[in-house]
Amino acid sequence: MDYMKYIRRKNFPLIWCPGCGHGIVMKAILRAIDRIGLQKDEICMVSGIGCSSRLPGYVDFNTLHTTHGRAIAFATGVKMANPNLHVIVITGDGDATAIGGNHYIHGARRNIDLTVILFNNNIYGMTGGQVSPTTPIGARASTAPFGNPENSFNISGLAEAAGASFVARGTVYDAVQLDKYIEKAILKKGFSVVEALTPCPTAYGRRNKLGNGVTMMKELKERSVSINKAKNLSEEELKDMIVTGVLVDRELPEYTQNYNMLIERVRETKS
């Protein structure tokens, strides 16, 4: 497919480091959009702040780069104002689940029709490798020089518990699967999350001696296990593993539709 159709070439070079996985997720998103056949004008891409959140600047849609953690809040306004737009949220693990955790939870609870692509690199990339809510316990970060003493989040599980209608997890190693999840997520009416595991060799890999982008991707592959296989594994066997696949796909009332029905009801009784 022709990626350049969607790219704002004049904004190159990208800010991403060599070996960063964010570009692979970007391509997966574009493949999904292309396969669905969405028009560029129908898409509004909204991001927070972080390396991942710089993505919207590079793609030729209606694009909104907001404040740290608030992408889902801004996106909620865009979607309510114009429900015809396909609103895709681009966010990092820090952006969505630390500073923006509350909006992530409540977006899922409302089940508002947003597609959230969550770039999980287990670290704050942009600000130089501080711990994030998904940094594994014991891992080193610039603010955890003796190893992270905190427990980490299962952020897909969080979306499920909060009421999202679709949740999937994939890795940039398996980019072909990733674009399928993204395609499904965009097509799903409701709050959909695709957690994309992506390496940050610069801010996470180096400090934890995980090698370059390629070795980190291989490691993602080795640790991946599909949801089907995972069903037969014990909790102990699943420790440190990445369960991939469509984790949640369910029908729940969607917020903008509900609100439009409310408007119709109110206007009928009024007239």
Binding site: T67, T76, V78, K79, L85, N102
Partner: peptide, 18 residues
Amino acid sequence: MEDEISSMGAIIGASLAG
């Protein structure tokens, strides 16, 4: 919304959408 931060974000998003 869930707080005032998101309320402010939402009105900016809605205004951008017209």
